[in-house]
């Protein structure tokens, strides 16, 4: 059987955009805002491509769930080097648990030995999908990966944890969610963008996969965070130390 890696990606507001909140508090303004591939997912794709380039995988499949506009992000991924793309159409955003159920259906179809995802999406900051997918799939998970080494039927994954670095060994297939320092994604060159237009991009409906999205959580309102009071400037180190002393912030 073909050795496949499935990479899940999400279309999100570009990380350089300063978001605005809708005046009625119903959400964040998305109209006319630059959208990109979630940066963590780009790292996941880069890792999949490097694994393939080392001869340890034969096909990299990139998958996303979302409205028709997501095709543009899938094309970016194809231009980076993914072999084909699968687009599961959903006009409404899906909660992580539904996303995991959909990805599980794709896994059953594609039979990958490895699934790579970003550790979180920078819009909702949930950080759940990979772990939920691993649970539903009843397979190992290795989250926050900063290094992935593959051996026969196994992977050794270095994870960035609060205490430092942890190494886990997992049997394959497994789900690995990636952290920032795993790699630096490549730049896409123009000829590759042209070539990517000819690569296969398949669209699937939720019905055809047999998944009914469930919304467990309701958004009550979205608000701006409390702003900090404007501070003051001091002229030199002595003034700074004096100000800190006055505030009682230095050890006695």
């Amino acid at each position: 059987m073909m050795k496949r890696i499935v990479v899940g990606i999400k279309r999100v507001v570009d990380y350089n955009v300063r978001i605005r909140i809708k005046p009625d508090g119903s959400g964040v303004v998305l109209d006319g805002v630059k959208m990109s591939v979630n940066p963590f997912d780009e790292i996941a794709l880069e890792e999949a491509l490097r694994i393939k380039e080392r001869g340890l995988a034969e096909e990299v499949i990139v998958a996303t769930i979302g409205p028709p506009d997501c095709q543009s992000q899938l094309r970016t991924c194809l231009a980076m080097g993914a072999d084909r793309a699968v687009h599961v159409l959903s006009d409404a955003p899906t909660e992580p648990l539904t996303t995991a159920h959909i990805l599980l259906k794709l896994i059953e179809r594609e039979q990958p030995f490895l699934v790579l995802l970003g550790k979180q999406a920078i819009d909702e900051d949930n950080g759940q999908t990979g772990q939920m997918l691993a649970a539903l799939w009843q397979r190992p998970q290795a989250t926050f990966a900063s290094k992935i080494e593959l051996a026969e039927g196994k992977a050794q994954v270095t994870r960035e944890v609060d205490a430092g670095l942890e190494i886990l060994e997992v049997d394959l297939p497994a789900v690995v969610t990636v952290d920032l320092r795993l790699n630096e994604p490549r730049y896409v060159k123009l000829p590759e963008i042209m070539k990517a237009k000819k690569k296969p991009l398949e669209s699937l409906s939720l019905e055809s996969l047999g998944v009914t999205p469930r919304a467990h959580l309701t958004t009550v309102r979205v608000a701006a965070p409390p702003q900090r009071q404007k501070g003051i400037r001091v002229d030199n180190a002595a003034a700074l130390v004096a100000a800190l002393k006055e505030k009682g912030l230095l050890p006695s």
Partner: peptide, 21 residues
């Protein structure tokens, strides 16, 4: 923490419910 972020969504999925992060 990295501990909770790792384990809690796996628990939520086994309980067939959403997680509030």
């Amino acid at each position: 923490s990295t501990f909770g972020k790792d384990v809690m969504p796996r628990i939520a999925a086994l309980l067939d419910t959403a997680q509030v992060s």
